[in-house]
Computed example of a mutant assay.
Amino acid sequence: MKQFFPSWVRVPVVFFIIFGLIEYFVDSGEQPAFIKESSVLLFLLLVLIILVATEAIVASMSNILYQSLDEKGKARYDAKKEAPSALAAWVKSTYKKLLKSKPVEEEHEIILDHNYDGIRELDNSLPPWWLYSFYISIIFAVIYMFKYHVFDGDNQYVELEQEYAEAKIAIEEYKKTAKNLVDFNTVEVLTETSDLKAGEAIYIANCVACHKADGGGGIGPNLTDNRWILGGGIKNVFKTVSEGGRDGKGMIAWKQSLKPLEIAQVSSYLLQFQGKTAAEPKAAEGDIIWPENAGE
């Protein structure tokens, strides 16, 4: 491995492999792990120091072992070190072909007449990799020009608008399944048994003291009649439970202690009192008559 990758290549490669593994396994949100977590940064610095120290120790040990050899051993070591492997020889040969340059012993064939204070200029050909890259860039530029400036192809602004539209659709789809994102504008009556049971438990724990168990009303208004002080229907009831009732004498705002889903559940549950007969119903309050379909 040392024949192909010197220490100044090996150390950074190993370091960034370790860094990549840490970044992959450490959940650090949008920021890189080594920025958000100071302990990770210190660990990475420690790893880098260990790698550099290891390379230095190995190099020192190799030098000590080399110096301990006799002349024949040093000769065998030097011969083995100087003999490149087949792969290394192929890489070196391929690299020279890609450069398409003359070897040093043949440079006299391509020396130009220019002479600047003893500095001579060689007439080397451009490296094929550079030349082909240049040709490819020209082809790309022509295609780009025709697509975006002649045929008005979608540019980055159009792509951004498309991504915004796709994101908006994705958000709406997500909201359909994320019940805790419900608000006054998106709430709907919950009809599943599990939601109504949860709403009943919330009602018993928080609302019975003012509205009674059967919704007949006490300190709070009657929930069984068809009149509502702040508006009927799931949206108005959700808003009233969330934001509270009338200033100074109304219900507290439950949004501080209940999640949006819980408010939707208890709102859906108490709407079921509509039309039922309470044991001791309180007199109707409010001027808004709740239509039959207002809870839908």
Rank of each mutant, 00 (worst) to 15 (best):
G199E: 06
A83T: 15
S93F: 12
K147S: 06
I139G: 10
K81N: 14
P128S: 10
L196G: 08
D183T: 02
E109C: 01
F184T: 15
Y203P: 02
V142A: 09
Y95K: 10
V150L: 11
Y132L: 14
T191D: 12
E106Q: 12
Y95I: 03
N124K: 05
S85K: 09
K97M: 07
T177K: 11
L160Y: 13
F146D: 07
A205E: 14
Y77K: 11
K92R: 10
E105D: 15
L196R: 05
K168G: 00
V187C: 00
K176A: 13
I136L: 13
L99V: 00
Y135W: 06
K175F: 02
Y157E: 12
E172A: 14
L196A: 05
G118K: 04
V91D: 14
N155E: 13
N185W: 06
A141M: 08
Q156I: 10
V158I: 12
E166L: 08
L181T: 06
S137D: 05
E105V: 08
Q162L: 05
H149R: 09
S125P: 04
Y148K: 00
N206R: 04
V187D: 04
D183K: 03
R76M: 09
K100H: 06
G199A: 05
V189H: 08
A75E: 14
A201M: 02
A170G: 06
K176S: 12
G73C: 03
D152S: 09
D78G: 00
L122E: 09
Y157M: 10
P103C: 01
H149E: 11
K197S: 13
W130K: 11
F134R: 08
S85E: 07
P84T: 07
R120K: 10
A75R: 10
H114Q: 13
Y135R: 02
F184N: 14
I202C: 07
L98N: 09
N115L: 05
V150D: 07
Y148A: 02
E166S: 12
A205V: 02
D195L: 04
G153S: 07
K197T: 13
I204Y: 09
I138V: 15
Y116I: 14
S101K: 01
W129F: 15
Y144N: 14
D183N: 15
I169M: 09
H114I: 07
K74I: 05
P84H: 11
M145C: 10
E105C: 03
I202M: 06
L181E: 08
L126Y: 01
A86R: 11
D195S: 15
Y164T: 11
K96E: 13
K96P: 01
F151K: 08
E188P: 03
L131D: 09
F146K: 01
A205M: 02
K102F: 13
V182Y: 06
I202N: 07
P127W: 03
G199I: 03
S125E: 14
K72W: 02
E82A: 15
I136S: 11
L112G: 13
L190V: 05
F134L: 12
F184K: 15
A198M: 05
K100D: 10
Y77N: 12
V142N: 00
S85T: 15
E173P: 00
K96G: 06
K74S: 11
E172L: 13
L160H: 06
L98G: 15
